[in-house]
Design a protein around this nucleic acid. Structure first.
Lengths: 344, 344
DNA sequence: GTGAAAGCGCTAACAT
DNA sequence: ATGTTAGCGCTTTCAC
């Protein structure tokens, strides 16, 4: 094993093996135009010298870095962590590496990150989360680097994305509750300005109620931050202000679980007194009692499919659908009442 | 805004601004040796042309990539996700980017990743998780790139690391249980071969029992995979085979929560009938009922401190302690009985 | 099948 | 304060 010294370059290998740099380059890159015997010879001296190609030099010469940038709101959030796993697995499969940075949904930071990644000459960019402004779009289109949005959509521009239909999913959750016969269904959502978790889910909730001719009341609507604490708090308020409440739909599992505990702390039972449905189906939802009924979002798949899509763009492959909606479904567990209809 | 075309280089800026490349390079890098007026001129044409420095070329010329590699077992695991957040925050603070890859604790994969990161010319490497073999050590020492271990330790080699004292922590958890007066305390651990979550925690458990003269019985020891399911399953077995069991220490919060539910499903109560204590203090532990008593591991800090330490090595700064143990503490909540002593 | 040589876009002496 | 000039380590025509 070589000790710490000046790094071995392709030139050293060439000299040592008695061939040219070009030939060494060819065997390193698996170019078939090399006589087996010389290939073997080169491979041997590579091993002897402990030669390790310099990816930076290669990147400069070839204009490819086999690296993709990932802008993510917060890696410590279970939802994004799982999604990132999907991204990384597919990236590995296609021999790409991932540069990861948290944006905290801060537009200024997002903008900086995108630019920093472009400076690093990423071959592609995956953008997750935040709202897309014109500044984002301009930056994207000023570059030739392919960009794919994950768990985000973009109506205005033609950016490719992969996500689920947020509004439909929220609507379905609300409908399940409606079918149980509840008169009053509360909503614990997230900032309406958030184009992913905010408005679309709110409007799905609203639409479901409207279709059944149920009144929408501000009294039953609360906006939290998606975390457990806010779910707990908001649900406590909701119960106090709405004694007749029998169901709630929360747009995140953490908030839903917080809501369940709030219900219990008020001396009521889930689902006997109050039904609760969450959103995302993060591991937490099947690690609490009662098990949380929730919308299953294929987080891993969103990441995986988005990354796969990105590889197609990077390889200039033909892509048929650039805006893909993955299938969601409602996972009925124990936090809502069983539908009578089911018994037929 | 410039349209997609050939990228603007430092040379274009120099020509356009009527200065040399060196001068442009100086202003881009904030070198003070530039007359204010020419600096301004250069800055202007940079803006006009939409020039964006090419980090790859810079990396090749300067032999610095401002990138650090992170080898992590699994980003979708709450523990590592939080730790990664700590790493990333400090990295950003010091203007580094992070290349992230999952190893799944697979040694072959770890080895490949380390080499791939070296090829990418990372300025430093953060290694988390797995067991350190001689192959790892050789690879590390064959390179001049500084390496720091996070949440892992290394007794044999002189690699720097930041972690907590696993054995002590496990011992404390067991002692808390012991102080409650339990005769039989079960242990749900993880593969003993794991140098972080495995053997050290097991030996802490054992040592605590031994010190109190309590017998150690195989009947009360189970090895799981750290996840909820295995905690549930193993606890179910434990209860069936040990009717006299009144306490359990699990080396992960997920397993501990699984254990709690197993207890409940057997018609017993936590902590009245059985006390349970977990390990890590991931968010889950304060999102279940009863709230889980657990060992608090400063995950974020481990990542942050490790990254900070790495920056010191990368800048060749003086470092006083290269092996740091962060403080852990036991977080008593509701899954174990309150100690009578406390009432005095 | 193999080699020579011209870059890739930038930094870092070294001059001036 | 600014310019000139070598590289950095590799890929990639283009010859042979």
């Amino acid at each position: 094993m070589e000790k710490k010294s000046e790094a071995i370059t392709i030139y050293d290998v060439a000299r040592e093996a008695g061939v040219s740099m070009a030939t060494v380059s060819r065997v390193v890159n698996g170019n078939p135009n090399v006589k087996p015997s010389t290939r073997k010879k080169v491979l041997n001296t590579i091993r002897e010298l402990g030669y390790r190609p310099n990816a930076v030099a290669r990147g400069l010469a070839s204009k490819k870095t086999t690296t993709v940038g990932v802008v993510i709101p917060d890696i410590s959030n279970a939802f994004y962590a799982e999604l990132t796993r999907g991204i990384e697995d597919i990236a590995t499969m296609y021999h790409y590496h991932i540069i990861l940075s948290n944006s905290d949904l801060n537009q200024e930071k997002e903008y900086q990150l995108i630019n920093a990644f472009f400076e690093k000459q990423v071959d592609g960019l995956l953008f997750l989360g935040g709202e897309l402004t014109n500044l984002h779009r301009e930056t994207f289109s000023a570059s030739t680097v392919p960009v794919v949005l994950a768990a985000t959509e973009d109506d205005t521009a033609q950016l490719p994305y992969v996500t689920i239909n947020q509004k439909e999913a929220a609507k379905e959750a609300t409908q399940v509750l409606l079918e149980e016969g509840h008169e009053h269904i509360a909503f614990i959502g997230e900032a309406l300005s958030d184009p992913v978790t905010g408005y679309p889910r709110y409007s799905g909730y609203k639409e479901a109620l409207l279709e059944q001719g149920k009144p929408i009341s501000e009294k039953r609507i609360r906006i939290g931050d998606g975390r457990y604490r806010s779910g707990y708090q908001l649900m406590t308020e909701l119960i106090n202000e709405n004694p007749d409440l029998t169901a709630v739909f929360a747009t995140s599992d953490e908030m839903a679980v917080g809501a369940i505990h709030a219900v219990q702390d008020q001396g009521k039972k889930v689902p006997t007194d109050i039904s609760v449905i969450g959103f995302n189906n993060i591991p937490l939802s099947s690690q609490v009692r009662p098990l949380l009924s929730t919308i299953n979002v294929p987080m891993y798949d969103i990441g995986a499919v988005a990354m796969r899509l990105l590889t197609k763009y990077m390889n200039q492959e033909q892509v048929d659908t650039s805006q893909v909606y993955l299938q969601h479904h409602i996972e009925i567990r124990q936090s809502n009442r069983v539908m009578l209809k089911k018994e037929t």
